[in-house]
Amino acid sequence: MNPIQVTFDSNVWESLVDLERLAAHPEAMSLGVVRKAIEDGQISPYFSDTLITLEAIRKTERADFLSGTRVTTTRTEVFEESPTTGASARISLEIAADFSHHPGQHEILIPLLSKAIDLGFKFIGTSRVGWLRAPDGMYKPQESNNHLLGYRIDRTCNAGRAFSERGLGEAHLRRLGDEAKEGREELRFVSPFIAAGSHPDQRAVARAIAELADGDALAAHYGHDHDVFCTLDFGRGAGRSSVLHIDHRAWLRAEFGMSIFTPSELAQHIS
């Protein structure tokens, strides 16, 4: 029997991998059942790469991080001469975002990540071009052929697009970026995700990054066709603008077949 593939939200995996946190958690018994299932190979655990690319940045520093991102261009010219076609030149231009100013992982997160990796956790992520990524070796192994790879990328993008069309997930950061670009010629060609860092409401930017992270986690979960998304987030703080709000659960189930469980529901499901 194949293991159940479960994507864990940050409000679950951090307590799941740390035994002291687990023992003090209100759902300690359920978390213990889930952890044992991981150790026994009954569950394959995953989490979203946004937890180290964006959520690891302090909320008060998130806007500064985005506004500090620079775009670099590298031009490469190769001249060739052939006795039959004569001289020719090949010119390529590489455009990339420079994220070298990323502050790194929070000191509290580093030991938790180590414990998660020891327990078998792998990262999953979206396919946003030119965006932040964790080191390649930390991800779920890539598909064995281009057909399966394309299938997963299409599913991920389709889910992300559907969330955005409903004003969820990345839509919040995109809106702030579009607002920041208004009347700013220097931001004309800048991605709204980067331009959002220049928005005057930095608290809104921090909240929007949190919503992007939730949307990316769910989109990647759907893209990889995982069985269960485990979370304790009901979107109460952000309200219905959160993709994880309880009011969106029926739509996520009907449209994408997503099973979103709490730890106790997951423990009951595997028992």
Rank of each mutant, 00 (worst) to 15 (best):
L132D: 04
E81L: 13
E185H: 08
S242L: 02
P200L: 11
L266C: 00
E185I: 09
N11Y: 09
T126A: 07
A210I: 01
H25S: 04
I209T: 08
E182G: 01
R62V: 00
G257S: 09
H106K: 13
F193C: 00
S82W: 04
A24L: 10
R236L: 09
L148P: 10
D49T: 09
T73Y: 10
A196D: 00
S264P: 05
L66P: 01
R75Y: 13
A180S: 12
D9I: 00
L113R: 05
A134D: 00
A196Y: 01
H224Q: 03
Y139H: 12
E185C: 07
E186C: 05
E170M: 13
G237S: 12
E265L: 07
D214N: 11
L173A: 00
G223K: 00
S241I: 09
H248F: 02
I260M: 08
E170N: 11
G150I: 04
L148K: 15
I52F: 12
G130N: 13
V33M: 11
G183K: 14
G197M: 11
C157Q: 14
R249C: 07
V228F: 07
L232F: 01
A250T: 12
I91E: 11
S259T: 14
I209S: 04
R133L: 08
T60Q: 14
I4T: 10
A217S: 15
T156A: 06
A96P: 07
T72A: 15
L187R: 05
E179S: 08
H248K: 04
S144A: 14
S271T: 13
R203N: 13
S67M: 01
H101T: 05
I124R: 02
A28K: 09
A97Q: 15
E165D: 10
Y222Q: 14
E81T: 14
Q5F: 10
W13C: 02
L54I: 07
V205C: 00
K59V: 08
W251R: 02
I260A: 06
D154A: 15
P192R: 05
M138L: 15
A208M: 07
P192V: 05
T50A: 11
D216G: 13
M138E: 09
G239V: 06
G237R: 12
T50R: 05
F189L: 14
N146V: 15
G41E: 03
G125F: 12
S114E: 12
L173C: 01
L252I: 06
F163V: 07
L51H: 01
S191R: 10
P111N: 09
E14K: 03
E211Q: 12
F189K: 15
E14C: 04
I4V: 15
S259L: 13
G257M: 10
G160S: 11
A87D: 09
L176F: 07
A28E: 08
L109D: 06
F79N: 12
N145E: 13
T76Y: 06
Q105A: 08
L176A: 08
I95H: 11
E80F: 04
V17Q: 03
L22S: 05
S67G: 02
L66N: 06
V6P: 02
I108E: 11
A96F: 10
F121W: 03
A238H: 06
D178R: 02
I124S: 04
L132R: 15
E81Y: 13
L31N: 03
G68T: 05
T85V: 05
D118R: 11
A24Y: 06
